[in-house]
């Protein structure tokens, strides 16, 4: 499970680490949106430089980001190859039946590849520099306007933060159950697909049952401590919007203008 880079947080003290999670979340989404504005190699060069500078500021090793790309490598290759061989137009280098290698195909393939890498780098940067809990806070804060349409913002945020808090606990328990079942002779990852799926059952069912018990205990403990729902609660953690968060958005605005200019 340690290979999973997505959703991991690396403690640090860079400007990016100290930014308001709302600003980071919104800015990352915005950035991913404007990547699609880029249509020329100059625009992609600008975006790549921008992203690499941000990674430099975060003081996190580039290895982590490359690791983030790895699990998606096959998807990226698949999409890029499709683009390369199925796009027509421009100079034709090679042709065989319905497959063709053309100038536009190659350019499009390169662009798609860049888009994937940029999006993954940016979202990895977001999760690596923001603790999951802050992200949950940010989501709550961003969803707040939805209260008008009676969306249970507070409950969703509570669910999110409890879910995040129990991830490591449940991971530990899963390993424990797996070891216990192994000790009793269950083979994991052996045999054909059907046998492998059957071997999962002795992990899944105890895990479900214990989650029910946990939920019951937790609800009792919460009630005993006076939890009555989102109304009338005060908040311990608060988010603070500072100048650097506004600056981030000004930068995003400038980047947008530059991208439109480079179309």
């Amino acid at each position: 499970m340690n290979k999973l880079i997505l959703g991991r947080y690396i403690p640090g003290d860079s400007i990016l680490h100290r930014m308001d999670p709302r600003a980071k979340l919104l800015a990352s989404f915005y950035y991913i949106g404007i990547i699609f504005l880029a249509r020329t190699w100059q625009a992609y060069a600008l975006l790549l430089v921008f992203t690499l500078v941000l990674i430099g500021i975060s003081k996190i090793k580039l290895d982590f980001f490359i690791k983030g790309v790895k699990p998606l490598l096959w998807l990226i290759l698949f999409t890029v190859l499709l683009q390369i061989f199925f796009t027509r137009g421009g100079h034709v280098y090679w042709q065989w039946g319905f497959l063709s290698l053309t100038q536009y195909g190659l350019i499009n393939g390169a662009y798609i590849f860049m888009r994937f890498v940029l999006i993954i780098f940016m979202s990895t940067l977001l999760t690596l520099t923001t603790p999951p809990l802050s992200l949950a806070d940010a989501i709550e804060s961003i969803l707040k306007p939805l209260k008008v349409v009676h969306f249970p913002v507070y409950e969703v945020a509570l669910m999110l933060s409890i879910a995040l808090r129990f991830v490591p606990t449940l991971m530990d328990e899963t390993t424990k159950i797996m070891d216990a079942q192994r000790a009793r002779g269950v083979d994991f990852g052996e045999g054909n697909l059907f046998q492998q799926m059957k071997a999962i059952v002795p992990i899944l069912i105890p895990l479900f049952v214990s989650s029910f018990n946990r939920a019951d205990d937790l609800a009792t403990a919460m009630e005993a401590r006076g939890y009555q729902g989102g109304e009338g609660r005060s908040k311990y953690r608060i988010l603070k919007w500072r100048t650097k968060d506004t600056v981030a958005f000004i930068l995003m605005g400038l980047l947008t203008i530059a991208l439109i200019f480079l179309r």
Binding site: A221, A224, R225
Partner: peptide, 15 residues
């Protein structure tokens, strides 16, 4: 009334 329950993991609400 304040109550402390048996299982330390299951009553830990905060992150």
């Amino acid at each position: 009334i304040g109550m402390v329950f048996q299982n330390p993991d299951n009553q830990f609400v905060g992150a």
